[in-house]
Simulated scan of single mutants.
Amino acid sequence: MKRTFFLAFTLVWGLLLSMGAMAQGEAFGPVRSAIRSSSSHDLAQFFAPTVELSFDGDKQSYSATQAEFVMKDFFAKHSPASFDFIHYGGSNEGTPYAVGKYTGKDGAYRMFVKMKQVGGGLKIATIDFTKE
């Protein structure tokens, strides 16, 4: 009896976790497309009013408009050869994040994207690029 309960509990828990990961992955789908196409304009549609951008540890906060121009400059200098998110997660408070691998013509970067709730929807709060 205990074993059956444990197996059922494990199965239900695994399904709930996978559904949460899929939901988080779906939130990042349009972001992935914008990055793959190196479209700062499309990416900016998902920016929170203030976005923290970090390039190899140099962090700065920008308005959404300023962040769009910073990302446009980054994409121009480091156009993507490939990009994909490799891990999705969320904090205890429910803040979703994703870790990706961005390969540009000048090398590879580990990319961290964190979203937050803004006006009933998820918006990008942080983007962090770290050269590998």
Rank of each mutant, 00 (worst) to 15 (best):
W13H: 08
W13V: 09
G14N: 04
G14L: 15
L15Y: 11
L15S: 15
L16E: 05
M19Y: 07
M19L: 14
G20M: 10
G20C: 02
M22C: 09
Q24E: 10
G25V: 05
E26T: 08
E26C: 04
A27T: 06
F28I: 01
F28Y: 12
G29R: 15
P30D: 08
R32Y: 04
R32H: 11
S33Q: 15
R36P: 04
S37C: 11
S37L: 12
S37W: 07
S38M: 13
S38W: 02
S39Y: 07
S39Q: 00
H41T: 12
H41I: 13
D42Q: 15
A44F: 09
Q45P: 00
F46N: 05
F46C: 10
F47L: 15
F47C: 14
F47M: 06
F47D: 06
A48Q: 02
P49Y: 03
T50Q: 12
T50K: 12
T50H: 08
V51L: 14
E52F: 03
L53M: 09
L53Q: 01
F55P: 14
F55A: 10
D56Q: 09
G57F: 06
D58T: 09
K59M: 09
Q60G: 13
S63K: 10
A64Y: 08
T65W: 00
Q66H: 10
A67Y: 12
A67Q: 08
M71A: 09
M71K: 12
M71C: 01
K72V: 01
D73R: 10
F74R: 04
F75T: 08
A76S: 15
K77P: 03
K77F: 05
H78V: 09
H78C: 04
S79H: 14
S79A: 12
S82N: 15
S82W: 13
F83R: 01
D84H: 03
D84I: 03
D84Q: 03
F85P: 00
F85M: 02
F85W: 14
I86V: 14
I86W: 00
Y88M: 03
G89R: 05
G89W: 04
G90T: 01
S91K: 03
S91H: 13
S91N: 04
N92V: 12
N92W: 05
N92G: 11
E93P: 02
G94F: 01
G94N: 09
T95A: 08
P96T: 06
A98V: 06
A98N: 00
V99S: 07
K101G: 01
T103M: 04
T103N: 07
T103C: 02
T103W: 00
G104V: 02
K105A: 11
D106V: 05
A108K: 14
R110L: 10
R110N: 09
M111K: 01
V113Y: 04
V113E: 02
